[in-house]
């Protein structure tokens, strides 16, 4: 896979996981006229995880607090007013990130290689954004999605990108 195709693959994988696991309506860049306005970091819940394998790196996913609440409720089949939905909104973002990562890596590397995916942890969104922003451009894919009309950010930050992976379609 060419490094420039990573963003498109990340966007497609994130859209698919958010739709299937959390029953969310997702609009990608082809659906909007202008990129969504990102919310202040204090209004977001962000999760990050690291992975190791034929190549290593990390991923992060950030969603507005209100959306994270809705995603948790959808995943658990709860009403929005149910207190468990509020309790689980960080877990929801973390688990969705875990699913996005687990589904994305085989698309990049093929199904034979083994990866070890670390547990997702809730992180400060401002710090996660800064980390993504300062990562080398040729080793990162950062996408914004509109999920239920709210802006969601996802990033894949690679430490290295082996030639074998770069030759995959």
């Amino acid at each position: 896979m060419k490094i420039e195709n990573l963003a498109h693959t990340l966007e497609a994988t994130a859209s698919s996981v958010l739709g299937e696991a959390a029953f969310a309506m997702v609009d990608g860049p082809s659906d909007w006229d202008e990129p969504p306005q990102l919310l202040p970091a204090k209004d977001m819940i962000a999760a990050r995880l690291q992975f190791q394998g034929p190549f290593t790196g990390s991923m992060f996913l950030a969603a507005p607090v209100t959306l994270a609440h809705e995603l948790a409720a959808n995943m658990l089949g709860l009403e929005l007013v149910d207190p468990e939905a509020a309790l689980r909104r960080g877990d929801a973002v973390g688990e969705l990130l875990n699913m996005i990562c687990g589904n994305l890596l085989p698309l990049i590397a093929g199904s034979a290689p083994e990866f070890s995916i670390g547990a997702p942890a809730t992180v400060d969104c401002a710090a996660a954004r800064a980390m993504a922003g300062s990562h080398p451009e040729d080793l990162r894919a950062v996408v914004a999605l509109l999920v239920e009309d709210e802006p969601v950010e996802a990033a894949l930050l690679l430490d290295d990108f082996p030639t074998e992976a770069a030759t995959l379609p």
Binding site: N98, M99, C101, G102, N103, L105, P106, S111, A112, P113, E114, F115, I117
Partner: peptide
């Protein structure tokens, strides 16, 4: 029940 996509695993 896992995200595991490695055919080897």
């Amino acid at each position: 029940v896992s995200t595991e996509g490695s055919g080897t695993k």
